[in-house]
Design a protein around this nucleic acid. Sequence first.
DNA 1: ATGTCTTTGTGAACGCGTGCACAAAGATGG
DNA 2: CCATCTTTGTGCACGCGTTCACAAAGACAT
Lengths: 275, 275
Amino acid sequence: MATGRTHRPATRSRGIPEATVARLPLYLRALTALSERSVPTVSSEELAAAAGVNSAKLRKDFSYLGSYGTRGVGYDVEYLVYQISRELGLTQDWPVVIVGIGNLGAALANYGGFASRGFRVAALIDADPALTGRTVAGIAVQHTDELEKIIDDNGVSIGVIATPAGAAQQVCERLVAAGVTSILNFAPTVLSVPDGVDVRKVDLSIELQILAFHEQRKASEENPGAGIDGSLPAAEEPPVVAKRAARNQTPAAGAERSASPDQGPDGDVPAVMPA
Amino acid sequence: MATGRTHRPATRSRGIPEATVARLPLYLRALTALSERSVPTVSSEELAAAAGVNSAKLRKDFSYLGSYGTRGVGYDVEYLVYQISRELGLTQDWPVVIVGIGNLGAALANYGGFASRGFRVAALIDADPALTGRTVAGIAVQHTDELEKIIDDNGVSIGVIATPAGAAQQVCERLVAAGVTSILNFAPTVLSVPDGVDVRKVDLSIELQILAFHEQRKASEENPGAGIDGSLPAAEEPPVVAKRAARNQTPAAGAERSASPDQGPDGDVPAVMPA
DNA sequence: ATGTCTTTGTGAACGCGTGCACAAAGATGG
DNA sequence: CCATCTTTGTGCACGCGTTCACAAAGACAT
C-alpha cells in the first residue's frame, strides 16, 4: 500500500475515518462497473464482494456518508456513484501537473484513468531541455523554469512527483511555494512539507520488500531450519559472534550474486524510476 | 499506501506486526544512505527523523527484531542494515517477472531500485506478438505462451502484473497455477487468489482520489459554504434532481485525448497503465 | 570505582478500525 | 392490513497500533 500521509491527527476529516476514505475509491470503481452494466441496485453483500471487502465494513463505511440504502433492497447504484463522487470531490475538475517525465512520468501521462475521474493533466514538466517541447500523451513537455507560472495559471493544487530521488525535495518545495497543497510522490524519498500540505507516497521498492518478507516466511514455514541461520528464535541472543560475522559480510548482500554491475558505488540509487 | 493484502489474520508473522514490516524498508533505505556516508552509528531520534517516523515507534519496531542497540550510543548502522535485510529476506535472490510491458511495465523494467535490493528481473512477458523479441531495459520480451515455462525454469515466486485491468485476473491465475505465491498488482482490479498467495496492490487512481478528498475538505474549510452544494450537511437529502444532473457531467473523459486506441468500448477503461 | 549523562527497550494507556450479531425498516405477498 | 422475509444500519467488544513516559543499561569522565 502506498503508504505515507504526513502529520495530521488522523480522523478529523469531518467525521469520515481515514480508513473509510481510502476505500471509497474502491467502492466507486465497483459501482461504476455496475452502472455500465445498467444494474439498478446492489446489496451490500454483492458490492462488498466486488470491491473485495467485508460487507459489514462496507455498510459501516456508507453509514458515515449518510443513510443511502433501502432496507430489504440495497443501494441505488447511480445515486451511490453520485454521492461517493461528491464526497471525494470528483464532481469538480482537478488540474494536475506531473513533474519528471522519465519512464514513469510518461506512463502516468498516458494513464487513461486520470481523465476518467475528474483529473486533468494540466502540464508535464521536466528539467531536461532535451525533452522540452516534445509531446507525451499529446501534451507538450515544459521546462522546470515555467513551473511556478504553470501552477499559477492553471490553479493547480495537486502535483505528482516522478523525478529521481535527488530532485524530489527541491521540486516539492517549489510546488508548495507555488501553491500546491497535495502531492503524490513516486520518488523514493521522505519529503518534508509544511503543515497543511498532504503527501501520499507510492513506492514500488517497498511493496516488493514486503512481499519478499512474507515469501521468506512462507518458505521457512514449510521447510523449517532451512533459513540462512536459525532465524526463527529471533528472540534469542544472536551473540556477539553473529554480530561480528555480520559486520563484514554484510554490506549490500547483493555483492556476491553480482549479476550485473548495476550501479557503481551508490547503493540507494534513486535511478530513473522510483515507484 | 499501496494497500491491499489478501486474507490472513494479520499479525501472525511470527511476532513481527504487519505495520512494522511495512516500515522496515523505510528504515533500510535511511540506513543505507547513512552507510554510504560512512556514518558508524545513529540514535533512534536521528534515524526516525530520516525515515519520517516517530522515534518511539522506531524503537518499538526494532525491539521486535531483537535488542540491536546500545544504550547511551545508538544503533550500529552496518549491523542494523544487515539485520533488517535478513529479516526482509533481502539477502537472497528474488527472481521476478513482469507481465504486461506497456508504458508502466517498461518503466518498472527500467527501475534501478529493483536490482539494488536482491530483486532481479528474470523476464518480461507480454501478450502482444509485436513486442515479443524486442528488448526493454536490456531484457528480451517473451510471449505469454512461455509464462509457465519461464516461471518454472527460473523458480520465480514473485510476479508483477502491469496489464490492463481486463487481463489481470487471468494472468494472475496463470501465475499462481505456475507457482507464483506473491503478486504485486498494478491493474485497477480486485484480484481473487487462493489462500497462501499474497497480493499487494498499487493504484494510482485511488491515491489521487484520496488526495482530492482532502483537498476538497481543505477548500471548504477556509471557504465554508462554497462547496458545489451544501456539502457539509451530507446527512441531508440531495434530492433526485442532483442525481440526474450528475449523470451526464460525469463519465469518462479520457475519450478525447485518444492517443492510442487502447481498448474500444469498455468504460472503466483499464487503459495501458493502471496504477 | 563511582557518578553522571545519554539513549535504549518496554509497560501501560489510549484510540482507531474491524467484525459480529441483531434490532429496526421497509418491501413484498396474501 | 397483516405476516413474512430481506437487507440495512449500528451498538458493542475485541485487537492492533501508536504514543507516552520511565526504568534499566551502558558509555564516559573523573
